[in-house]
Structure formats: C-alpha cells, structure tokens
Amino acid sequence: MSSLKYRLFKNKLLTLSVVIFSALTAVPLVLIIGKVFLKGWRQINWDFFTKTTPTTLDALLAINNNQPIPGGIANGIVGTLMMVLVASVIAIPLGVMCGIYLSENRKTKFSTVVRFLTDLLQGTPSIILGIIAYLWVVIPLKGYSALAGSVALAIMMLPLIVRSTEETMNLLPASLKEAGLALGSPYRSVVLKVLLPSAFGGVFTGILLAVSRVIGETAPLMLTALGATTIQWDITKPASAVSLLIWEFYNDPNLQSMIWSASLFLLLLVLSLNILAKQLAKKWRI
C-alpha cells in the first residue's frame, strides 16, 4: 500500500511541477503586457488615434506645463495599415498559388527546391529583406516609399502564407478532388472551386498570422519606408508606421512616454489578430 501512496504522491508532484513551470513561462508575457498597459494607457485618447506625432518642442512644452503630450500616432497607424494592405495584395495571391502548387505537386524536384527556398526565406533576418527591398524598389524609384516597405513586408509574409496554404491543402481528403473530377470538371476548377474553398479556413488563418507577424516589423521599414511626420496616402512617398514611431519616440528624450502608448496599441493589435486567427481556425476546422 505504501508503494501506491508513494506513486500517487509522485504523480501529484509531477502535475504540480508541470503547472508551476507552465505558469513561469507565462510570467514574462503577463509582466510585459502589464507594464505596457500601466505606462501606456494614460496617453491613449481620441487625439492619440487622430493626430499626428508632436514635435519635440510641443512635447517639451507640455511636459513643462505638466500636461499630457499633445498629438498621436495617426501617421503611423495609416502607414502601417496601408503598407500591410499593399503587402497583402502582393503576398496573398502569390503565396496561396504557390501553396496550392506545392500541395498538388508534392514530390517533384521543383517543389522540393521551392519548399527549401521558402524555409530559407522564413529564416532570413528581416533586416536583410529590408536591404533587398531597398535594392529592388528604393533605388529604382530613387527614393524611400511606402511601396518599398510593402515589398519588404510582402516578402516576409510570403513563406508563412505558402506553408500554411500548403499544409491546409494537404489535409483535404483525396476524395474531395476525386468527387470534383468525377463530375467531369476540369482540374483548374476543381482546385479553385472545390479545394480552395474547402481550405479557406486554414488559408485565412495563415494570412492573419502572417499579417500579425509583420505588422510590428521595424528594421526592414527603416531601410524602405523611412518614416514621415504627416499622414501620407501616396504609396510612392515615404510613410510612417507604428513600429517606426516607437523607435523614433525612443530616440527623443521628450517623447519617451509615447513609447508605451504606441507599444500598447501595437501589442493589442497583434494580440487581437492572433486571437481572431485562433478562433477562426477552430470554427472553420474541416
């Protein structure tokens, strides 16, 4: 009997330590969110979303008068959204098509090479992709631009979309394709009208995760979009981004308190994209 008790005790001990270690890994996350929230929420108000970044001078005056810093991050929000949108327009069709190709041609040499290259691309430091976009877009267009930033982000999104599309398509039962072909429909319309819609949930989740992955990118944007103090809708002109603003705030002693509010905004955006992606993945599971 004592050995049974001992085993039960061992079991409990194990469970307890698993719980403790899991909690430990969550600690940094909770601390980060807590810190950002506490330091950032005070700056967040209507102006924060609608006004552009204040100049150092305005900020200094406000600080001396013990007032909250005027202005907001509207230029960053617009820039980020615009660049992510353009990047998506480039990366989604390319990535989804490539993912379909890989799933439909699993064993050809070409697919093996493409798969290897996508893995390589996924592991490439983002600053290097920024340099590539600089070479491909900034130099030919003779200037920094939101478009160049979008290209850098698109290259980052591409491997994520390719692989998630491929994996989702691989999960589809072969019977689905057979059913489509057995009705005499051409291969192309089986892929586009049967397989792709059936994989939609997984593909869309992959896209959301790719967006949430690049939305906070900073390094590649420094080399491409550069930054702007005003709201810029023209994609051939330099643009700001929330992540770029955080970096700029960090470099300006008078704008330090804006770091936290901009970070809070970005963090909440990424978190909600992630949660949305997870929920959709659950709902649309095939």
Binding site: P173, S175, L176, E178, A179, G180, L181, A182, L183, G184, S185, P186, V194, P197, S198, F200, I286
Partner: peptide, 19 residues
C-alpha cells in the same frame, strides 16, 4: 471531362462538397 459526364461515379465514402 466528357467521359466522366457520360460515366458518373459514386465512391465508397460519401463525399459531398463540404462548402
């Protein structure tokens, strides 16, 4: 395509299009 429209097929597992 024409062959498959003349000769319909039903499979072992029911496979309606889920979407």
């Amino acid at each position: 395509s024409e062959v498959r429209r003349m000769a319909g097929m039903v499979f072992q597992r029911p496979n309606p299009f889920p979407t």
